[in-house]
Simulated scan of single mutants.
Amino acid sequence: MAAGLSGGDGWNLPRGEEDGEVDWSAIIVMAIEEPIINIEEIDSDSFDSKEAAYDFYNEYGGRVGFSIRREYKNNSQKDGKVTSRNFVCCKEGKRSEDKRNRKIKNRRAETCTDCRARMLIAFNMEFGKYIVKDFKDTHDHPLISEDCAHMMPSQQKIKFVQAIDVELAADYGMPVRKAFELSSRQAGGRESIGFMKVDVQNYIWTRRQNDLELGDVNWLMNYFQTQCLEDPSLFYAVQLDSSAMITNIFWADSKMILDYGHFGDVLTFDTMYKLVYRNRPFAVFVDLNHHRETVVFGAAFMYDETTDSFGWLFNTFLNAMSHKALRMILTNQDAVMAKALVQVMLDTKHLLYTWHLMQNAQKHLGNLPVGGNGIKSVISKLMYEIEGKEEFLLE
């Protein structure tokens, strides 16, 4: 066999007599040609904490080209302090045999190779620090090139400064993809950013979960109180049930109230949005301004869609808008909502969405033999082509 061929990632790969023909069976254990860090320096190094040791070994793995993970640890029986901790290569160990089903055709690819690379630290009582007790730097698998090192699991970490940018982007409604691209450009490219797009998504989700530790309602109340300091004209109200539990929540900021004063003669009330994880209605009062741009006059989280809930919401909306009456309001075909509107907004004309009328006509009358293009063409003609009452009755 000819001499080994030095690979671009630092490995000596065995080569056959013919070009391009590699004898992979000859690959047993391969080591790095030039270690990044002197082994003697590592053996004599000490760390103030196990976290500092992890960061050190993780940085070493990133420069060499392998990902790390925490393995076992030993705790003191007296105070529970970690007395020793083992950090290993992510390919340490082997997958145990799955005895549940031996007839699986497409098994998952084996990722572990029982790699023996590791760094073992132990707490030294005399110095009060963690020292390296054992260090092995040989790997039995190819290493990752430097330009792909940021994709390794242990290297994917959002730094404090980057986290601030991600939070600001999320607060302003920027999509995860654009937030990741912005961070990539600031860092000089994806290979320099140190994390992946999925890490941004996970960070935002974790942050929101932490914000909601007090509970959804408590967090929302704290948010309203904070916003009142910045916007004294912010209006919000809550409805309580017989057990003093919050059921419905309505709010409108100063811009919403001002827009309603200018463009609030006609509006649309929509409850089609749902909170997916609770299936609760999210209601909005919206309309168009003089530039045909959508403007929001108020929003509400509702516990249910009953007459009492709608009645409270419509009354609260009028209170927030200084009881300025509406001329017309457009809603869907909901009998419960219509009943609440009649009770609260006596002088307001109640109109229905043409889209809902068309959908209901197709749902309930779609099988009628009306000829032509079906019931849809008939309803369209009645709504858009006929103007007078007499002509409508004749049709």
Rank of each mutant, 00 (worst) to 15 (best):
G4N: 06
G7K: 09
G10E: 02
D23K: 11
M30S: 11
I37F: 00
E40L: 03
I42Q: 00
Y54S: 02
D55W: 02
E59W: 00
V64N: 00
S67L: 02
K73L: 07
S76D: 15
Q77S: 15
G80W: 04
N86T: 11
V88T: 09
K91S: 03
G93V: 06
K103D: 11
D114M: 07
A117W: 02
A122G: 15
V132D: 01
D134L: 05
F135I: 14
H139F: 10
H141K: 12
I144A: 12
A149R: 03
M151A: 10
A163E: 14
V176G: 04
K178P: 01
S183A: 15
S184E: 09
R185P: 00
R185H: 12
G188L: 11
I193F: 02
D199C: 13
V200K: 01
R208K: 13
G215P: 03
D216A: 14
L220K: 08
N222P: 01
F224H: 06
C228P: 00
Y236A: 02
L240K: 13
L240V: 08
W251Y: 08
M256G: 04
T268Q: 05
T268G: 07
T268R: 01
M272Q: 12
P281D: 11
P281L: 08
P281S: 11
F282S: 03
V286H: 02
L288H: 12
H290Y: 11
R292L: 07
R292C: 08
T294D: 02
M302P: 01
S322W: 05
L326D: 01
M328H: 10
Q333H: 07
M337K: 04
A338F: 09
V342H: 06
V344A: 04
M345D: 03
L352W: 14
W355H: 12
A361T: 15
H364F: 15
K376Q: 13
S377H: 09
E395C: 12
